[in-house]
Design a protein around this nucleic acid. Sequence first.
DNA 1: CGCGTTTTTGAATTTAATCAAAGAATGTGG
DNA 2: CCACATTCTTTGATTAAATTCAAAAACGCG
Lengths: 239, 239
Amino acid sequence: MIEAHLRRLRARHSISDAEEAAIRAAIGEIRDFPARGTLVEAGEEMSHSMLLLKGLICRYKDLSDGQRQITQVHVPGDFPDLHSFTLKKLDHSIMTLTPTRIAFVPHANLNVITERYPHLTRVYWFSTNLDAAIHREWELSLGRRTALGRCAHLLAEFRFRLEVVGLATKNGYDLPISQIDLSECLGLTPVHVNRSLRRLREDGIVTFRTGRVVIHDLARLEEAGEFDPAYLYPVAVPI
Amino acid sequence: MIEAHLRRLRARHSISDAEEAAIRAAIGEIRDFPARGTLVEAGEEMSHSMLLLKGLICRYKDLSDGQRQITQVHVPGDFPDLHSFTLKKLDHSIMTLTPTRIAFVPHANLNVITERYPHLTRVYWFSTNLDAAIHREWELSLGRRTALGRCAHLLAEFRFRLEVVGLATKNGYDLPISQIDLSECLGLTPVHVNRSLRRLREDGIVTFRTGRVVIHDLARLEEAGEFDPAYLYPVAVPI
DNA sequence: CGCGTTTTTGAATTTAATCAAAGAATGTGG
DNA sequence: CCACATTCTTTGATTAAATTCAAAAACGCG
């Protein structure tokens, strides 16, 4: 059930049996949610964090004219609002992109972890710092990459993150979201995303269609987006 | 010496005498650095974190063609690379923008804090989560705000963060950096930043000149940037 | 004072947004 | 299972925003 999460943690750190037991003990209710539903509104007071078991969700912020910026997309195994444990009120909203299954982890249980399991606390701290590293890479995309580069980079990032939890190969992965969703990640209009994707397709690099990403040439995809996975910390780091 | 840092922490959380002592005990060497110098190169292995006592520094990432995106600017009292405690290798570089004074905090000492001071650990975890919240707001700026809105928002954010540590008033603050630096924060060219700043000045909102920001109309500045300080967590949150 | 950097401005170009509308896919209720 | 409605994708034409190129003016430092 939380296998994807453990796999994600163990990709970077060693987790002892006692720590795994502590994680399992911290988990409360498990619930399913339909696609495109609000999970948390910005400013809401949180008393639990959510562990994503299945599906895709995103965090986003809106401007007053309705323009939306998705600040991060989460894949199974992620702990999308672990930061609410210390922030309490979130500065952003969270919604499902696809049907999802979520495990709720009460903050009281996370507090027990910080009191009794310093190493596991550091591992979870690392996890929120990894989220911040992804934010920084997106800042680079939004601020400096071209439309084509942004699209390529995002598709490469998703592939890499999904592969860590066994949901992608070198050749492709399921991504059942719309080009509108992509445009809200990329700071572009849906029309321009569509044109950029056409270009990537016509150049024989990648095809995104009907909820699936088919990669024709991974090397060229990563090159087009200047994707370097170092910011995703793929290597184990003892802490 | 670390008064700005304590002030910043205590703006949000209560710090006990024992915790303050633990912070002071964790501090190692203190050094001064000139303006525009590299403090850390991306990918470098870190064994300490840096506490900014005086001056301004930034974190940034470059593309291969030399384009630079500054992902965050740090003000006195900030712990700019506290995240290196868990990440070890940084995904970005760090440089000084102005002459600075920095206190080095060995990771070994931070480790002691996580083993012995769970509450202080949560406070520092909060601190890195606050950094991530700033990243998200910058993603919104870079992805969706207009050039004018980005400039206004950034100047409003700097004012707010500097006021927390007593370095800004409602009327202005020192900001001894160039328009080129601003353009690297904002994902714009220096030329366009210059034009946006002229517009803000001619509209009687704010003047940025010779290292100083003079605010003519704070309400209109924050309105122009749709600045809402909620993401900076100005209110105390018990954790 | 003189040199290098930064700021400022103008003109031309490029990129991406906007507007508009036709097709394709998806989901729903009958 | 089909018909219809809705949403999403795709394309073309036009407009707007920001970049690029160029050069002069101002500033800051040694």
